[in-house]
């Protein structure tokens, strides 16, 4: 299981694409046990930052360091065992049964040859139970509803018991009940010591559940800190260009009302 010492640092990340600067010197520190919400308008560079932090995209400048070791120097299989990544709107490309799709999360744990060892099969069972997928176990993953697929993908990401979870808009397209369920699970995961970073557009949910917020605007980090300090009406006006009223940020009764 994860240790509270897990520490992911980004130092001066710069990413350029076709003459445009997508990320412009982003530095931040994330630690185990924190649930950090990454917020910012569309096109502010959230997905790119997620990919860089996950080690899937090599930045043009700067580096990401995990527990003192640059990601570039960590073997891809070792990194895959420690870090889980969920892209935006993940989907299954073949109609695999849900249990086999969840088991794919154990790919970096598999022995060189042969099938799934019993110890790992037990982890699949546990993940299926934990994410309430028992009724869908043998259902083709392509026929799941949006909410069920989101749960199944989260089970896929967490079945390997990673120390870090980076999820890109895990609540996109979910109805309120499933969104609440999803963010509750992320928050509980961080409560058990995992480093959780999720990009979010649901500001009220972020205000209630995220312990910290990182705010991106046009490729720059404009705020990063505990939710109560980072989420202010002034920041929302500056970053999202909307007028909002923020009450109780960082508590379970927080609300963000647009005016």
């Amino acid at each position: 299981m994860s240790t509270p010492q897990t520490r992911l640092e980004a130092h001066g990340i710069v990413v350029r694409r076709g003459g445009r600067t997508i990320l412009d010197g982003v530095s931040l520190v994330l630690e185990g046990g924190q649930f950090t919400g990454l917020i910012g308008p569309n096109g502010s560079g959230k997905s790119t930052l997620m990919a860089v932090l996950a080690g899937l995209l090599v930045p043009d400048a700067g580096e990401v360091v995990l527990d003192g070791v640059p990601l570039a120097r960590i073997d891809r299989r070792t990194l895959a065992r420690r870090r889980a990544y969920l892209p935006q709107s993940p989907r299954a490309e073949w109609p695999l049964p849900v249990e086999r799709m969840v088991a794919l999360g154990l790919t970096p744990h598999l022995p060189a040859f042969g099938g799934l060892p019993a110890a790992l099969a037990a982890r699949v069972d546990a993940a299926i139970a934990q994410f309430d997928l028992g009724a869908h176990r043998y259902q083709p993953a392509t026929t799941l509803s949006g909410g069920e697929l989101a749960r199944a993908m989260l089970a896929r990401a967490l079945v390997g018991e990673p120390e870090l979870l980076l999820a890109d808009e895990p609540l996109a397209g979910l109805d309120p009940r499933h969104a609440l369920d999803g963010i509750g699970r992320l928050s509980a995961l961080a409560g058990r010591g995992t480093l959780v970073l999720a990009s979010l557009h649901e500001l009220t949910l972020a205000a209630r559940h995220a312990t910290r917020l990182a705010v991106l605007r046009e490729g720059r980090l404009v705020a990063c800190g505990p939710t109560a300090e980072a989420l202010t009406a002034g920041m929302l006006h500056e970053v999202f260009e909307v007028n909002a009223c923020v009450t109780g940020a960082g508590t379970r009764t927080a609300s963000v009302d647009f005016t």
């Binding site: 299989r77 895959a80 889980a84 993940p90 299954a92 490309e93 794919l104």
Partner: peptide, 13 residues
Amino acid sequence: ALTLGEAQAESLG
């Protein structure tokens, strides 16, 4: 692993 798309496959090592 590619069943999950290229991004997830790559994240799985």
